[in-house]
Design a protein around this nucleic acid. Structure first.
Length: 828
RNA sequence: GCCGGAGUGGCGGAACAGGCAAACGCGCACGACUCAAAAUCGUGUGAGGGCGACCUCGUGUGGGUUCGACUCCCACCUCCGGCACCA
């Protein structure tokens, strides 16, 4: 007899149907529920470039599955989505194609919103935040004013990194690679002396080194730690012969007696004053060269040390020795004090320099096994001090400490800490960004726009010029204003903010995107609904790419710490747990790109396979944190699996109704399998182990298909199995799970059901495979009861065929027994 | 150069408080169904040897610890990522 055929699994038919229903029913609104524990799941918001690509799906689909899992676990879950909508591409589109950035951005958002919906994710769209809308950026400006008040936003003239293609300055974090190129367009940056706005992230450098409150990947912690680049040392004051103090920073005060020259950065303010007339020409030439060199592409190929002598001398404060002062471009004005004491014997760079310019290289730290000969290479390790006046003989482990104390006592040095991290340059000479709320008045100088006047609106009717200059400069209505302080004529700041400012607080914006506490903001306004904040914050789980490790993730930590100091929040870290997904490459193993023609489009995949398949494949195909090359053959396994689930749940078995009674031990075996699956699925979800989570469901489905051919079909144990399978599947494949849930007469919606719980008793095994080893090698396997006694296990092992074969003629010297696992017979 | 991460079948990957290596899937081979193909289902699939029961080898390389090592320790190699004249 032929089983009645149910209709086929056609994902396209059921997916849009359920998406519509879920939307109508507001199934995914996240409303405060004080009866449940809260869970704020956040995934990095996209830039509205126009299309959702595989990278977005790879980041978001598994994150969505996990948020759904947490919801089923009984948490009150917030899982919002928005758009990081300011930025250069919009402006470039405007210049190239004459579309206004606003229009371009909004139409892209509409398309991407549609694409995001097709994923079937549980985003709460009522909370959508779009950073380029005045309702959002008013608060970005409000934060700027707050930071300004706190002294954390300041303006200064500095040599900043400038991208000649994007025509704007960049933050230090946005300059990448050895050739120092622009993070966006790849053009090597140049240095420009400009008045720019900075956020004083260095104020929190020390605190940002503390990761004790957060569970972040080791990789990110290391990258941030390196980026912040703390080094502990001593500031020591040398004096020029004319008496000018020259402060240097050193991590090795114990080498002070080996300083045989000083080096200043070419831009050091004292260079001019110190330079002797006969050396002036050489110094000026070198300075010009160095200045140009930072502008030219710095191909780091040869890092040969160069420099010139200023003609001036300094006095080493520890031994009154007269040492020459040089300038060299290997000393940076931007680190430490811009001047160093050079100890050639114990520093690589100083050594190379001294060799080149024939400067003395006295040894003051004794290298191990040193023969007293001049050094062939610098010794940079620790060691006992020698040739160091009163300190000669000080052991290496005490040297730094003792010298520092001594310097402090005599007032010539003090303990100092330096960080590699610089303040965050947030000024951008571009149109499509948040206007910096500052006005310049001839009389009053830089004056902040009053809170009540926010937002400073970005004018819509700007004229785009192909020069790349910000149209704000030529927009008279915007430019000319009155000074809020004296009422006189004034002009507005025309720079806009780095978009990373917008994204530094977007997870707060989601709390209340239409929050309008007084259409006019003021100093003590709250940028978000305090009640929502109290409930949801901080973010519990944050998912996204590693590429933000030293940009967004540094900035957003800074913001939260500053917000804490403003009294807005009462915690120190914005996101408690962070997980990074890897990158999905093209099938050729290369980065997906239009020019390579290896782009896999999620839209097309959804069309041919359905969203559930794409979601499940992205979870199953790779270790999430690693990613890898797309495999268009590999994905085929998923529709096969889902089809088997479909027929497993809906179709009658081939041979009709079962007549025989199911045996008790078969029932137990099936239930055991089911409960073990629940356990595994739960653990995998907790661990972000999405690939094994899917594999586990495949195993469960395979077990059910097998059981279906036995009298187990239709029993309560069978029903429990089917129900479990659907519930476990719901986070990964929400549509098919919902459809099968409904078709089997279960109450809408599966997404409002509880995550199943496993019974340890039912999940436990009655027997296990006892491995029999002889001298550590597998020789036999025995199926034995779990509660087997040690003696019995050993006896059985010794009596096994495999053991007998390999112990013949030998003595069993020792028996190793590992309960629940094995017996190892050790022979002589 | 410094700092991270990773090396397991043809492929993606499982397993690691030290205890059955390769779960799950892709691919491949054979078989069933079909006039045929696709789809589907079944069986097999690390390498070598043996008719076979079985045996030997096998988790980047070389050592070590251990009754026992993919897992721990030491030394290296390769790949990926980050930083890089930071005093």
């Amino acid at each position: 007899m032929v089983a009645p055929k149910t209709d086929k699994y056609i994902p396209q038919k059921i997916e849009t149907k359920w998406q519509k229903r879920w939307k109508e029913d507001e199934l995914y609104r996240s409303v405060i529920d004080h009866d449940k524990p809260k869970h704020y799941a956040l995934t990095m918001l996209p830039y509205p470039s126009g299309d959702l690509h595989m990278g977005h799906w790879y980041a978001m689909a598994p994150s969505d599955a996990r948020a759904r899992y947490m919801r089923m676990k009984g948490y009150n879950v917030l899982f919002p989505m928005g758009f990081d909508a300011f930025g250069l591409p919009a402006e470039n589109a405007a210049i190239k194609r004459g579309i206004h950035p606003h229009k371009w951005t909004i139409s892209n958002i509409e398309n991407m919103r549609r694409q995001l919906r097709s994923m079937g994710a549980m985003f709460d769209w009522e909370r959508e935040a779009i950073s380029c809308l005045p309702g959002y950026y008013r608060w970005t400006q409000w934060f700027f004013l707050k930071l300004y008040e706190m002294g954390l936003a300041y303006r200064k003239k500095a040599a900043v990194d400038f991208c000649p293609k994007c025509n704007t300055t960049l933050a230090r974090e946005q300059v990448w690679g050895e050739d120092r190129h622009c993070e966006r367009c790849g053009t090597p940056v140049i240095k420009k002396e400009l008045e720019q706005w900075f956020f004083k992230i260095t104020d929190y450098a020390e605190e940002q080194l503390d990761f004790s409150q957060i569970d972040w990947p080791e990789r990110v912690v290391t990258m941030q730690t390196n980026w912040i680049g703390k080094s502990v040392g001593t500031n020591v004051v040398f004096r020029s012969q004319q008496g000018d103090p020259i402060e240097v920073f050193t991590t090795r005060p114990d080498t002070l007696w080996g300083a045989t020259f000083m080096v200043l950065a070419p831009e050091h303010p004292l260079v001019n004053k110190l330079t002797r007339p006969e050396r002036r020409e050489a110094v000026e030439t070198y300075k010009r060269q160095a200045a140009r060199q930072t502008e030219i592409e710095r191909l780091a190929a040869d890092k040969e040390k160069t420099g010139v002598f200023t003609g001036a001398y300094a006095v080493n404060p520890v031994n009154e020795e007269r040492i020459p002062i040089w300038i060299a471009d290997y000393v940076m004005m931007t680190y430490g004090t811009g001047a160093i004491m050079a100890v050639p014997a114990h520093d690589e760079r100083d050594f190379a320099f001294a060799r080149r310019y024939d400067l003395p290289i006295p040894v003051v730290i004794e290298p191990p096994d040193w023969d007293g000969e001049p050094l062939a290479e610098p010794y940079t390790g620790p060691g006992p001090m020698i040739n160091s006046g009163p300190f000669t003989g000080t052991p290496g482990d005490k040297a730094v400490e003792r010298v520092t104390e001594w310097l402090e006592e005599r007032g010539i040095g003090e303990h100092a800490v330096n960080y590699r991290m610089r303040d965050w340059c947030i000024s951008r000479q571009r149109y499509w960004g948040v206007p910096i709320p500052i006005v310049y008045c001839d009389k009053c100088g830089a004056v902040p726009v009053p809170y009540e006047d926010l937002p400073v609106l970005l004018p819509e009717d700007a004229e785009f010029l192909p020069t790349g200059e910000s149209p704000l400069k030529n927009h008279d209505d915007f430019l000319h204003t009155t000074c809020p302080r004296c009422g006189g004529p004034a002009i507005r700041e025309t720079d806009t903010m780095d978009t990373f400012v917008c994204s530094s607080w977007y997870h707060y914006a989601y709390l209340s995107p239409y929050y309008k506490e007084g259409e006019t903001a003021h100093s003590d306004s709250m940028p978000f609904d305090p009640e929502e904040a109290k409930h949801w914050l901080p973010v519990d789980v944050y998912t996204g790419g590693i590429e933000h490790a030293t940009m967004h993730l540094i900035y957003t930590r800074f913001f939260t710490k500053a917000m804490r100091d403003m009294g807005l929040v009462d915690f120190d870290e914005p996101m408690l747990t962070l997980r990074n997904q890897g990158i999905i490459l093209g099938e050729d193993g290369e980065k997906m790109s239009k020019s390579r023609g290896n782009v896999i489009s999620p839209d097309e995949l959804v069309e041919s396979y359905g969203a559930d398949t794409v979601r499940a494949y992205l979870m199953f195909g790779w270790r999430w944190e690693l990613g890898g090359a797309w495999d268009s053959q590999g994905i085929e396994g998923i529709p096969r699996f889902l089809n088997r689930v479909w027929s497993c749940v809906l179709e009658e078995p081939e041979d009709g109704t079962q007549k025989a009674e199911a045996a008790q031990d078969e029932v137990r075996a099936l239930r055991r399998e089911v409960h073990q699956s629940i356990k595994k699925a739960t653990e995998d979800m907790e661990d972000f182990a999405f690939n094994t989570y899917i594999a586990n469901m495949m195993e469960l489905n395979n077990a059910l298909l097998k059981a279906k051919e036995t009298p187990l079909y239709g029993t309560p144990a069978w029903e429990e199995g089917v129900e479990t399978l659907l519930l476990l599947l719901a986070p990964a494949c929400p549509h098919i799970a919902e459809e099968l849930w409904a078709r089997t007469g279960r109450p809408y919606s599966i997404h409002q059901q509880s995550w199943p719980e496993w019974d340890e008793e039912i999940a436990s095994e009655e027997t296990f495979t006892l491995v029999v080893q002889v001298d550590g090698r597998l020789r036999d396997r025995l199926e034995v009861p779990v509660d087997i006694e040690e003696d019995e296990a050993k006896e059985l092992a010794l009596a096994s065929d495999g053991a007998k074969r390999h112990t013949e003629g030998k003595d069993a010297v020792r028996l190793i027994y590992v309960p629940g696992r094995l017996v190892n017979i050790v022979t002589g």
